[in-house]
């Protein structure tokens, strides 16, 4: 499982920064302090990414907390590591933390798509409920279809179906009822 996650992480990284929609601008330090500052920030995202690839759930959680710490720049590598954690991490709490981290970036349509797609692949009801909440908060048009599927899925946890129905109502009240 972990090996698989690592492979996927590598594959996604090789795929480049499509998720970011835009590449973060190359740092143009005006003076040494700025250079140092950006170096430290870069190092922090490096630490976040490398910790997210580690064997223990605690280290991976620490990586997510690094990634979301104020001062860590948004970079395609960090974003990809968070997406990979949401999609593949074997521990529920790590996927939950990744979901919480990604929901701060729902202004990015690629992130909304990732969250919406995770609704269909995620198996923990608790993570599903968090995804639903994040998508409804973001008024994500992309989530309508997976939410409709969840709402009517007979084998789904009752809490998930209820939350899906509530989210659909919320979206509808904002005038969003189809993709």
């Amino acid at each position: 499982m972990l090996a698989a996650a690592a492979v996927v992480l590598a594959a996604v990284s090789a795929g480049g920064g499509w998720l970011m929609g835009r590449q973060s601008p190359a740092p143009q330090p005006r003076d040494e302090v700025a250079a140092l500052r950006s170096e430290v920030a870069g190092l922090r995202s490096l630490v976040a990414v490398s910790m997210l690839g580690q064997g223990s759930a605690g280290a991976r959680l620490q990586g997510i907390s690094y990634a979301t710490r104020p001062g860590t720049p948004e970079s395609p590598e960090v974003l990809e590591a968070l997406v990979s954690a949401l999609q593949h991490d074997e521990h529920v709490n790590v996927r939950l933390a990744a979901c919480d981290a990604l929901r701060r970036q729902t202004a990015n349509p690629a992130v909304r798509r990732v969250l919406a797609r995770a609704l269909a692949t995620e198996d923990s009801p608790l993570v599903k409920v968090s995804l639903i909440e994040a998508l409804a908060d973001a008024s994500a048009r992309e989530s309508v279809r997976p939410l409709l599927n969840l709402k009517s899925a007979a084998n789904e946890d009752e809490a998930v179906r209820t939350e899906a129905a509530r989210a659909l109502d919320r979206l509808k009240s904002k005038g969003i009822s189809r993709e």
């Binding site: 620490q62 907390s65 709490n93 933390a97 009801p125 608790l126 946890d157």
Partner: peptide
């Protein structure tokens, strides 16, 4: 340095 995380549905 060691995170603590607890969850339940």
């Amino acid at each position: 340095a060691r995170p603590l995380s607890f969850s339940s549905l």
